[in-house]
């Protein structure tokens, strides 16, 4: 196995606050790694550093062996890192199909190559990927619905679909089940597991529901106050006393 993502001594400070504290995280190809930790531990910050939404204070990030610290967010996406947002970040007034369509175009022609006098339908590969993606997230039958009119759970699925349509090798998911009903959560978790298997994805998942985390993860990294305090397979992490201490104040996991 080869590392698809590696952070080296990554540091992010906001004023005096160290939100990311010398993080060394390595993710192997095909893994599902979960990032857990109490509120404010720095999970979203770490994700945002990887996507280049935030500028690091120190350290380096490598994707497939290449440094990506000098890239713009869209360039990182082009390289193959997708992100699903903590809220349903979609294009509300466009249809479900157009939402996925734009993401497919982003993957294909994001760095500004396509012809602006050519009709959208004359890009069959993009069209096909759009439909495949909608199929994968179970929204194909609703492709003509305006995205804003979807129920919340479906909006989140669409959000994941948008992230997938840009064909990432590594998918970063920041609390994909936040705000979902138990049923929606259940179906989203199944979706994530299916996706990982079928689409050969590597996933970095931030999730607060421990049941989900321990059932889906290959590996878990625990963040506390910006640093990784434990890392390993679920059973190992579960038994780690420092995790229980720092993370749950001693409560049994």
């Amino acid at each position: 196995m080869t590392a698809i993502l590696e952070t080296r001594d990554l540091v992010k400070e906001f004023g005096g606050l160290v939100a990311t504290d010398h993080v060394n995280l390595t993710i192997e190809e095909g893994e599902l790694v979960s990032l857990i930790g109490p509120n404010g531990a720095g999970k979203s910050t770490l994700i945002n550093l990887i996507t280049r939404m935030l500028e690091e204070t120190e350290g380096e990030i490598f994707f497939e062996g290449d440094p990506i610290t000098d890239l713009e967010p869209h360039e990182v996406v082009q390289r193959g890192i997708g992100k699903s947002f903590q809220t349903a970040s979609i294009f509300p007034e466009l249809t479900v199909e157009e939402n996925a369509n734009i993401a497919s175009f982003g993957a294909e022609h994001g760095s500004f190559r396509f012809n602006f006098l050519k009709h959208r339908s004359s890009y069959p590969a993009v069209q096909q990927r759009t439909l495949d993606t909608l199929e994968a997230v179970g929204l194909r039958s609703q492709k003509d619905t305006t995205a804003a009119d979807l129920p919340y759970g479906d909006k989140r699925r669409l959000e994941i679909g948008i992230a997938l349509a840009s064909e990432p090798a590594l998918l970063l998911m920041d609390e994909p089940t936040a705000g979902m009903s138990p049923e929606e959560t259940q179906s989203t978790v199944e979706l994530i597991e299916d996706l990982q298997e079928e689409m050969d994805l590597t996933i970095l998942l931030v999730e607060h529901d421990m049941e989900i985390v321990f059932s889906v993860s290959d590996r878990i990294a625990v963040l506390n106050r910006g640093s990784i305090i434990a890392e390993g397979p679920p059973d190992e992490v579960q038994g780690d006393p420092s995790v229980q201490e720092a993370y749950l104040g001693g409560v049994e996991l």
Binding site: T51, I90, G110
Partner: peptide, 8 residues
Amino acid sequence: RAEFVGLN
């Protein structure tokens, strides 16, 4: 979101 589907 547009930036994060890879659009410049």
